[in-house]
Structures are given as C-alpha cells and as structure tokens.
Amino acid sequence: MGKPDAEGHGPADGLPGLPPEWGRVVVPDDASALAAEAAQIRRELRRAAGLSGGPRALGLPLLVLLVAVLTTLAGLLVVTWPRANRGNDRPTPAPYSPPATLTGRALPALDLVDASNAPVPLRGLLPAMIILVDGCPCPDRVAEALAVAPAGVSVVTVTGSRTVPAAPANQRQVRALADPAGGLRSFLGQPARPGGLTALLVDRSGTVTRVLPDLGSVDTYRQDLTALTA
C-alpha cells in the first residue's frame, strides 16, 4: 500500500497536490484493488447515459403515434359531422324552371295520336292550351282550364302513352291525344312529375307564348289564355 505524506494530506508517493477537502487519499500498490469502485462508476455512467438518451430514443415513436391518433380523429370527424343533421337538414329541390328561350320559339310540327290511334297534327289545333297530363290526369284542373278558355282556343290534353284519357264532361270537348314518341316532352326538356300538370300556350302562328311548369289556378294564366285569340 502507498503512504500519505506526513500530515495525511497533500502529495504522497509522487502524486500532485490534491484539494484538502478530499481528505486522506491512499493510492494502492495493486490497481486491481480499485476494480469494485471502477465497476460501480461504470454502472453509474451507463445509468446516466440511459436516462439522458431515453427521451431522445422514445421521441420518434411517440411522435409517430401522436400523428396516427390525430389523423384517425380527423377522419372520424369528417365522416360523422355531415351525418349529424342529415335527417333534418336536407336541401329542398328547386322547382323546375323552363329555359328562358322556350317562350317565343315555334312549336315543333308533331303528329300525335287520338283514341283510335289515328295521327293528329298538333299544329292543326292552334291556337291552343296544351296540357300534359302524363304526371297526373287531374280532370278537375283540366275542366277549370276548359271553362275559362275563350271560343276558338283549343284545350288539348296529352299523355305520354298510347292510352288516351277520357275527356271531362263539359259543354265543350277537350281534345285528348297521346304522345308515345315523347316529342312534346323532349321539346319541353323536363320529365313528367307525379301529381303535376305542365301546360303550353301557343298562338295561331305556332309560337309558344307561355310555359306553365306547374299549372296553378286559372287566375295565373287567364289573361294569357285570352290573348291567344288576338
């Protein structure tokens, strides 16, 4: 074993001066005597290195997990949010509005058929109020139009099948025709709507003067109907 200096502090066996607060320092002759202390120091260093490197080592996996969780939550929010009010917040379909250019255009030269399946040129019945009844027969509405139509103006009902509907009983006869080829519907550019009537007012020259997408009360078209006789 080595020996300290005479006072137990300071240099011993050739060692440089050490701080007094370290106390008595003994330097062994055999370095193997320090193996236990060295092993303890190595354990402490490894523990310190593990603590200092742990957060960095775990940082990337935690970041990936956080991004995955946020992405999943965002996807659930997008999927469920629009469905929350789906039952109470449905958009109301806009009513059909015929093209603005349809009024003022010439009625096509269409040949329809009557109850005996004989061809009837539609332009040969002008001036006329032509009512498409393939969405609804609605005989009461047809009878109202017939009652206010002036003399000389034909009231024509048109269905899309080959079956011609019966005309309502009235002092004047409605001309009931069928349009199996769908030429008149194609001219209008709109499908038949259940429960709805569509009407065209056409003057004697064959020009469409008004389109009624949803035939209302007679007060909404009485003046236009009278004007067809001019």
Rank of each mutant, 00 (worst) to 15 (best):
M1I: 15
P4N: 09
G8Y: 02
G10K: 01
P11Q: 00
D13P: 05
D13A: 13
D13Q: 08
W22M: 10
V27H: 02
D29L: 12
S32N: 11
L34K: 01
A38Q: 05
Q40A: 11
I41D: 14
R42F: 09
R42K: 15
L45K: 05
A48G: 14
A48F: 07
G50N: 15
S52P: 07
G53F: 13
G59W: 12
L60R: 14
L60H: 10
P61F: 09
P61V: 02
L62F: 01
L66S: 11
L66F: 12
V67K: 07
V67W: 11
A68M: 12
L70P: 03
L70H: 05
T71P: 06
T71M: 12
G75K: 04
L76Y: 15
L77K: 14
V78I: 08
W81M: 01
W81I: 01
N85E: 11
R86T: 12
D89I: 00
P93D: 10
S97N: 14
P98I: 05
T103S: 10
A109K: 13
V113I: 11
A118C: 09
P121V: 03
P121D: 12
R123S: 11
L126R: 09
V133A: 00
R141D: 01
V142W: 00
E144G: 01
A145I: 02
L146D: 05
L146W: 04
A147E: 08
V148R: 06
V148C: 03
P150A: 09
V153F: 06
S154G: 12
V155L: 13
V155S: 07
V156D: 10
V158A: 02
T159C: 00
G160H: 07
R162H: 05
A166M: 04
A167I: 09
N170V: 03
R172T: 03
A176F: 04
L177V: 11
L177I: 08
A181Y: 08
R185Y: 15
R193H: 01
P194N: 14
G196I: 06
L200E: 00
L201M: 04
T207G: 07
T207M: 15
T209M: 03
V211W: 01
P213G: 03
Q223W: 04
